Simulated scan of single mutants.
Amino acid sequence: MEFESEKEMQKWLSNIFAKGQCLADVIINYEEFISSSDHLNYPDSSHQKIAHSFLHCLKSFENHEVLVEDKNISLNSDDILRPDFLLYSSATESIIIVELKNQKSSTRQTATEIGAYAAELRSYLPFLSEGDLVNVIVSSEWPTLLCHFTYNEIVWLHKRIICLEPTHSGGERALKIVDPYLIFKEQMTPSISAQQLGGYQICLYDDQLYAGGDYMRLQEFENSMFIALNAMSAKGNSLKAHGFAFLWRHRFDVGFAPYNITVMNFASFQTPMLTIENSTVNENIFSNKLIKAIHDHNPEGHSNTLDIISDYAETFLKEFCSPRAEGYSNWQTLKPRIFTEIAIAFVGWGYFQDRLFDRLAKMPKHEEADIRFESTDPLFAIAMLNEIIT
């Protein structure tokens, strides 16, 4: 170990800051990491997120000041919350939480403390976004549990975290950016199966059709339908969910619901089955209990999260139609119906929104319109989904 204790590590870093130096001054591979393009070659977008998180954090490392060092920040005098360092970066207008760890057994404590400090900061700054909160973990060891925690916080919860470790340079103590590969090397990016996506159709019934009204009357409300789609995307992102929705209408005058929204969300409890079936995964007591629960209850992804997203959309739909959820199933069953009719628009949230815009950014511009594609283009979206869903 480079330091005998966390206290020694804190004293060293405190002296660095007292001399007017910043984190960038003591990280030996700071410039190398910033100028490197290795992260562009990572095969998976989740792996790239790790590197992008590191790069995001580094922007705050050249100009910052100490707000508190090992002081209680709790607004409640009965609670004790003492981050090792809280820094303020004037360059990025960010708060930097620095957490020091010098032993393998403190991994769970690290996860708990970082979350607690961030929550308490929002008592002072209630609108502090994840993009303006930089988490720095300095650890002499990077056991599996700490790597798993960091991976999930960055990839699935969109936290901005960077991992550093103590080292030596020219006989002096220093810090080094941990290789992102260390964080994601043992992580498996689950292949996405159509079974992992649960959902249903929100049928937009036009009550006036029961009295012989115009079948295309709802066409004048398509803008309101687009607003409902955007509301679904916003709500899905706020819930940190991962899914998408298609707006489509019948090709012919069929039934009393001319328009439909097919909404899908990750069926979280289908993912373990596909992960555990991977030959590289070792079974344990928990995995066996989880498999049994899934077999007993067969959850298909029609969870509260999906209902919250749909209910939010219905707020904007009820003014001109009677929305009703029907056809509960998975993507394999619901997908064909969309494209035998007239697909109108697409929105995504979470992972699917990220992948849509990643693909959009790589597309050449349309020569005449000088644009790439509409982000809601259903044909562009289905091509993207076909690439990532088996």
Results as ranks from 00 to 15, higher is better:
residue 12 W to G: 05
residue 16 I to V: 13
residue 16 I to H: 01
residue 16 I to N: 03
residue 18 A to D: 09
residue 20 G to N: 02
residue 20 G to M: 01
residue 22 C to T: 11
residue 22 C to L: 00
residue 23 L to W: 05
residue 24 A to F: 04
residue 25 D to G: 00
residue 25 D to Y: 04
residue 26 V to G: 02
residue 29 N to E: 10
residue 30 Y to F: 12
residue 30 Y to V: 02
residue 32 E to W: 08
residue 34 I to H: 10
residue 34 I to A: 06
residue 35 S to W: 03
residue 35 S to V: 10
residue 42 Y to A: 06
residue 45 S to C: 07
residue 46 S to V: 10
residue 46 S to T: 13
residue 47 H to K: 13
residue 51 A to T: 11
residue 51 A to R: 10
residue 52 H to T: 06
residue 54 F to H: 15
residue 55 L to M: 14
residue 55 L to H: 10
residue 56 H to D: 14
residue 57 C to P: 03
residue 59 K to T: 12
residue 60 S to L: 08
residue 60 S to T: 04
residue 61 F to D: 03
residue 61 F to V: 05
residue 62 E to A: 11
residue 64 H to A: 09
residue 66 V to A: 07
residue 66 V to D: 04
residue 67 L to R: 09
residue 68 V to M: 01
residue 69 E to W: 02
residue 69 E to L: 01
residue 72 N to P: 03
residue 73 I to E: 04
residue 74 S to V: 05
residue 75 L to V: 12
residue 75 L to S: 13
residue 75 L to T: 14
residue 77 S to F: 09
residue 79 D to Q: 15
residue 83 P to R: 09
residue 85 F to M: 13
residue 87 L to K: 09
residue 88 Y to W: 10
residue 88 Y to V: 01
residue 90 S to V: 08
residue 91 A to P: 00
residue 91 A to T: 14
residue 92 T to Y: 05
residue 94 S to R: 07
residue 94 S to P: 03
residue 95 I to S: 12
residue 98 V to D: 11
residue 98 V to S: 04
residue 98 V to T: 13
residue 99 E to Y: 03
residue 101 K to N: 08
residue 102 N to T: 07
residue 103 Q to T: 14
residue 104 K to T: 13
residue 105 S to L: 05
residue 106 S to L: 04
residue 106 S to Y: 04
residue 108 R to D: 09
residue 108 R to Q: 07
residue 111 A to E: 13
residue 111 A to C: 11
residue 112 T to K: 13
residue 112 T to R: 15
residue 113 E to F: 02
residue 113 E to Y: 02
residue 114 I to A: 11
residue 115 G to N: 11
residue 115 G to M: 07
residue 118 A to I: 07
residue 119 A to H: 08
residue 119 A to R: 12
residue 120 E to L: 01
residue 121 L to R: 00
residue 125 L to Y: 14
residue 126 P to C: 05
residue 126 P to S: 05
